[in-house]
Design a protein around this nucleic acid. Structure first.
Lengths: 248, 248
DNA sequence: TGGAATCCTTAATGTGTATCAAGTCCGGAG
DNA sequence: CTCCGGACTTGATACACATTAAGGATTCCA
């Protein structure tokens, strides 16, 4: 348990995701409308935020931390279907109940909007609708990229793909130097969450992490902190073109 | 090769997808704007419509037939990432080049809109933007459903899932009787296309089709026509809840 | 200081699907 | 009619990953 730090954020001007979330294109007037219907919530790592089928009275943006969307079959097999990083959007306007289970995989703060008034804004505020369309199209692209990973890649390639995605998203959030060839980040996922993401068992994930370490594709500092000495090498292991194609 | 039957469709009033495609919510005035920038194109089964990376000067709706979106790795492994049935939308407004390869898996007619003027309509016509957002969210849900299939289901469950999806989409297009328990349809995919969709080999697909036939889950009339005597049984084989949850 | 709970690693064995290799079926062209 | 090619089926074998099992590292709490 931890104190909800989110109370420190007061208004949108200070918000770390102000220019990349669903509100990115809003002007001052539109932002005021959003401020009226928003509130912050915090969760600690491992908490379930909602279960598939639950009534859902809000939609939200991830402000900080990481959340996972998962689907579960009757016999317990589970598959992660979305990894939500800061600025990503949760929920579907116009839908009463959650389609997926949402869990905090790290400590997490969300900026929630009451659903009904948000739906009205969608109808009256093109800047929000357009941004939401754009973000949804991006998520669809990401989901399709992930279908290739799930359907056709080997366990080793799957791990390399996941590491590459986290590394890339981290790089865009913390644009430090032009040091593109070597970088460090914290894995915001347990081995089990990784296995749910990749359609593998937790044991196979562990084995492949060890193998990538042995082959110097990655260096571990503790269990969660990862250093990638050569990003091109990692992309190669992931089976992607080394140029990535993620420059948009 | 075949004669382009599409020339028979003249205007939107006669269009079979008038009320389910991206234009579904348009009034007469808005439809007139779309008519100005639209044209029909037909393709025969097997034709490649565009390759990933190609410049793309239009977006389009599938009017009739079936198309597939695929991604390919350098070594040739391929994964289908979208199955486009009538009324589905192809292309992304605001994007210059195609992200995926698009192929006609059956004879196909598309209603194409020149991209630049269509992008202007997005900015000026909320009915189009809203419908496109809704369709994109639906596709995202379908992609996530498919991630569960690819990541966690067995080969047999994968086949049953594909058959269930095609059966369901066919049922909504041809709402005949309330005969919900038994239905017939044509598979619009070769065994190879099915294997690309399911992340399997074509041999495994063939074996599982034979097994489902042997166990009377399906009855084949020729190689492509399928009869499902008991839809609930098929859903069970797919590993889904028998009630499906697709009643929206 | 000890115990228990998580999270992770490693090893031995089993199995589902890929791979490799023949065939079969069927429609179209000569 | 016969040949041909494409789509499909079936069988034998191989291998990647799952399963099962045990143990190690770290943290928290008693």
């Amino acid at each position: 348990m931890q104190v909800a730090k989110s109370s420190m954020i007061k208004d949108c001007a200070d918000c770390p995701i102000r220019h990349s979330a669903v509100c990115a294109r809003c002007d001052a007037d539109e932002l005021a409308l959003l401020e009226d219907i928003k509130y912050y919530r915090s969760f600690s790592a491992g908490q379930t935020i909602m279960c598939a089928g639950d009534r859902m009275d809000f939609v939200a943006s991830v402000v900080s931390g990481v959340a996972a969307l998962t689907q579960t079959m009757e016999d317990g097999r589970t598959q992660m279907v979305g990894l939500l990083l800061p600025s990503d959007f949760v929920g579907r306007p116009g839908r009463e109940t959650a389609s997926y289970t949402v869990m905090a995989t790290s400590d997490l703060t969300m900026c929630c909007f009451r659903r009904k008034p948000f739906e009205k804004l969608i109808d009256s505020t093109p800047h929000i609708t357009h941004r939401l369309l754009e973000m949804t199209l991006d998520e669809l692209d990401a989901a399709r990229e992930w279908m290739l990973v799930l359907g056709r890649k080997t366990a080793r390639e799957k791990l390399a793909s996941l590491l590459a995605i986290v590394a890339r998203r981290n790089a865009t959030l913390l644009p430090e130097g032009p040091d593109t060839s070597s970088l460090t980040f914290d894995l915001p996922l347990t081995r089990e969450a990784m296995s749910d993401y990749l359609g593998l068992t937790l044991e196979t994930v562990s084995r492949q992490v060890s193998a990538l370490k042995k082959d110097n594709v990655i260096v571990l500092e503790g269990k969660r902190r990862v250093l990638v000495p050569d990003m091109d090498r990692l992309m190669e292991e992931a089976g992607d073109d080394s140029d990535g194609g993620f420059l948009s």
